[in-house]
Design a protein around this nucleic acid. Structure first.
Lengths: 166, 166
DNA sequence: GTCGGGCTACTCGGATATTGGCTGTCCGAGTCTGACTGG
DNA sequence: CCAGTCAGACTCGGACAGCCAATATCCGAGTAGCCCGAC
């Protein structure tokens, strides 16, 4: 089982948005091209982030995308869940109640032992992601820049005029 | 995103097998019926556990399934990975190297910050499951038995003659 | 009575359809920009 | 010179196909047990 590829896209996109100065916005098409992603499906992922209140979309001719909240108030878990949420990896279908030897459903109040362990693992996974904010990610990324990328990015943004609102 | 339903089946099946006395075996068909699962696809899940070395299959007329190893030596992670393994939930496709502003691939030795956090979350998930053995699960289950199920199970097994090899 | 052989029934294992959801694409509604026109 | 108006182009958002993997099913190869017959 694997997370949707849109999760990776959304994380990189949010990281890029969080690095832009306040008030700036960039069209989804340009953001996709910058990451080498096909824009059509990428915009669908951004839609989900918008409806989740993480990303803000500005319409119109010089519109684009921007973070809706400060990076400090956005956890990676929120991003991931907005893009690929099924309420946890493990879903207990209560098969212990389904066999020919099951008791009355009245007796199955507490979750079964298997579900408890699996949900504990799910919680551990979510915990790591909820404890990391987008600002943490941004800080770590700026600490280990790849040589030349910042300059190339700035030049590319200037050349294409993708960033607006400054 | 969600784990395959076969994971739940496999966990319950292994728990049931681990509760049987040594030397006993039960056909996959009976094990599926006991859990209220359609046998056809269930057997495919059991196949994977067999090829992973977790479950042993005895062929022939009075054949069936049994644990291949003691329950103490089987972690839940092994069961889950045998049934639904994709090498972790998050897969980094290195999109940071794919845009028009990427540097030479020589400079991307270390994993990117996003992948690092996601892999850390994956590790936390796997850790919980690797620290729980099937014997732990069996112990916890016997501590909180549902009233009447043990008796009904024993009667059903005797009635259908599903268990062999005693 | 005992041993051997063959038959039967039952098991697992893999080859084969089917379905649901993620992936990928497109076009329409809405809106901001910018220029043009009139005062 | 300035304000109002209008056309234009570009944006997001949702509706519409395609494809892959998980699901579901079936049948065949193989084996252990059991019955029968011969010695």
């Amino acid at each position: 089982m694997q997370l949707s590829e849109t999760v990776e896209w959304g994380l990189h996109a949010c990281l890029a948005l969080a690095m832009m100065p306040d008030g700036a916005r960039i069209p989804a098409r340009a953001l996709a091209e910058y990451h080498g992603i096909k824009p059509s499906y990428f915009s669908k992922a951004m839609q989900r982030l918008v409806s989740a209140g993480i990303v803000r979309s500005i319409e119109g001719r010089s519109g684009g995308l921007a973070m809706a909240r400060p990076a400090e108030e956005v956890s990676l878990l929120q991003i991931v869940q907005a893009l690929d949420d099924s309420g946890g990896f493990f879903r207990c279908t209560e098969i212990r109640q389904k066999g020919p030897c099951a008791a009355a459903s009245k007796h199955y109040r507490a979750p079964c032992t298997i579900a408890r362990v699996m949900h504990k693992a799910d919680a551990a996974w979510r915990r790591v992601l909820s404890e990391t904010s987008l600002a943490d990610l941004r800080h770590a990324t700026t600490q280990e820049l790849i040589p030349g990328v910042s300059e190339a990015t700035e030049a590319w943004l200037k050349e294409t005029g993708a960033v607006r609102g400054l």
